[in-house]
Design a protein around this nucleic acid. Sequence first.
RNA 1: GCAGAUGUGGCCAAACUGGAUAAGGCAUCUGGCUACGAACCAGAAGAUUCCAGGUUCGAGUCCUGGCAUCUGCACCA
Length: 571
Amino acid sequence: MNSFENLIAESVAATGVFRAEEVLALLSIPQETTHGNFSLPCFALAKTLRKAPKVIAEELAAKLKLPAGISKAEPVNGYLNFFIDREFLARSVLSEIAEDKLSFGHAALKQKNVVIDYSSPNIGKELAFHHLRSTMIGNSLARIYKASGYNVIRINHLGDWGTAFGKLIVMYLRENRATDEKTLDSLTVKELNILYAAFSKAAALEPNLEEEARAAFTKLESGDAFYRKLWEAFRAATLKELMRIYKMMGVEFDHYTGESFFENQIPAVLEELKEKNLLVKSQERDVVMLDEFDLPPCLIRKSDGSTLYATRDLAAALYRKREYDFARCLYVVDLGQSLHFKQVFHVLQKMGYEWYQDMVHIPFGVILQKNEEGKWEKGKTRTGNSNLLRDVIEAASEKILAYINEKNPNLENKAEVATQIGISALTFNDLKNRRLMDVKFDWDSALSFDGATGPYVQNAHVRLCSIMRKADYESKAEDVSWEHLADDYAYELVKILARKGDRILQACEAEEPSILAQYALEIAEAAHRFIHHDRVLGSPEEKSRLFLVQGTQLVLENVLDLLGLFPIRAM
RNA sequence: GCAGAUGUGGCCAAACUGGAUAAGGCAUCUGGCUACGAACCAGAAGAUUCCAGGUUCGAGUCCUGGCAUCUGCACCA
């Protein structure tokens, strides 16, 4: 599509009224299809040319020599509207898709590294439902960056260090649990979850328990072998369950370098901060002042000497720059933590690292649920509803499976497909709106099968695959009569497919998966319409239409994949 | 109090970054399966884009001032 814009810009520039760059900047894609494929507003020049925009557009249209592929340039109310030749567009787009297959619309390799930090749950707890956001936004951004030509390093910055482990250790020992290797090996996250709950309950009655937990963590941090052993067992137990869920969701990471990984790099960070005279004592704690940025100080070390979130993030940032020399380093973390990231980035700036500018917080809104009064509320679920991710996924899968049993009982791998549709439905519900918006979650719309949903998009893909299966041959560009792909339904679909590259670029620049989610809906809608109105198999246009079906299937499959949805072929 | 995010039909929301008649979905109402998969399609109805000013050919979008909801603000991560 870019090439069309360039062609238009050149031909308009040849009239001498606009410069090519001006045309490219002004050229837009109208919402109304009756206004053509591209539109050039002529208002900006009205003053300098001392002519009405309407007249400028008319004169331009008269002088213009139409470039190849543009069938018409029509002046309307001060706009000059360009219409692409339908057959020309179908031929150029579909031939390119047939050539590039799934990578149609992807950008050329850039030799640049992008680090993406996402999911990053705390060890010792099971994944909660709200973890879906960071996990799936990060997962999609990683895929989008890859399609945009970057080398992506996916990092799960596990919360596997900190006072929380003091709590677990205190509680574990207090309950006199066995500490032999066999028992520790068979620990499960469930047990750890129960320990946490027990700690909170006990701490409410005995305030000094919090103190004990902090002391236990300090002991762990100072290298106590026995405490270390317990910690390792807690970590391993959680990681096992985490990996199981990630695998089920189709989410992968290159590194599980959590906070503990940076433990031994912290002294060097403290040393460097001291050397650069940034560390200030305040109420027995070490902080970096950020007054010049109108921010509260960044807390580096507690009064008992142990470190904090920010300290470890600093160590991690330095390590990542050293190890991966990133062009960009993303933190997919909820909006509530923007202050923390601002502080960390500014500390890096004060340390003299120019690349602090490449560090980006990718914030997103929280998941809200309806309470009894019908108001949207954060976090807490209604009584009886679990907020564990695995339970939500299971409930989703069950609902889908029941539906499959009703609609298509002979489907192979029913249970597996149901899980994939369920996860995709939850994911799509999460990605379909701009990430800064809070997700208003309710079961009915998140798991509904129709409308702007995951199943709607997957169903379009399934129907396309079904037609291809039945046709049982591959249509080639040579088989196609392009005039068979010039009717309204085919043309609208081709027009949407043509924009794939634009949409990926846009999603990457805005770091916004919802742009591709909306695009997936556009494709699905046009595809459903096309195969509903234009009979493929057995029609005189069969081979031509099949070529469009094939191209649409490839584009949709890849877009689903970029979103982290399962592009299933039968449901 | 300070800072950030959000505010668009009954509900959820989009708008290519300042362009033409403000998408789409849910819910409601009408039609369409002996039909390449109806998890679909076709149609109807529903809007002072939170309020007040401003900038300009043109504002949901930019500026100023309000209002409302949510979140964060030093020893959790």
